[in-house]
Amino acid sequence: MSKTDGYEIRLSGTGGQGLGLGGKMLAAALSSEGLHVAQSQSYEPTSRGGMSRSDLVVSRQTADYPLATGLDYLLILDKRAISISEGMINKDAVVLVDEELVPDPPSGHFKVHALPLSRTAISLGNLRVTNVVSLGALIALGDFCSIETMEAAIKQVTPKKYAQMNLDAVRAGYELVQH
């Protein structure tokens, strides 16, 4: 199976932004729709404050090559993470950036969406849900996963006491795009 049957998603930023968990939520959501998701992360000893990414290679069957080679959906939550993805963004890809944290987003033959992701998280009372807000916005922009599926996956992956907060965050992100 060649890669044209699937697509690749990358969540990138710095350590501590919850990108691994975001990838896990997204993988759970996509898997629940019967898709095969190969998920890999940068695995660095300096996980806090260092560059971080979480990649998803999504396909109908097991992907021939499970690591990212050309990105179709890219989230950037820190300007320092731009460099790791530049040069592997596919044509017509959706690139979502935080308007404050990534003031100078990459440009090219792809569409860049700068949204107040962290600001929205702060308005929800917790900066740490920026990742989940971003997921909401990403699925709204990408249309590869329904909000309901995403919400179900979040419930499954999140510990109970944070479930509502995450559900609020994904909805808020989703609505950032809808409105």
Binding site: A27, S31, H36, V37, A38, S40, T62, P66, L67
Partner: peptide
């Protein structure tokens, strides 16, 4: 290798 070891797949 590490790449396969840390890969999360369906």
């Amino acid at each position: 290798d590490e790449a396969i070891g840390h890969l999360v797949d369906t």
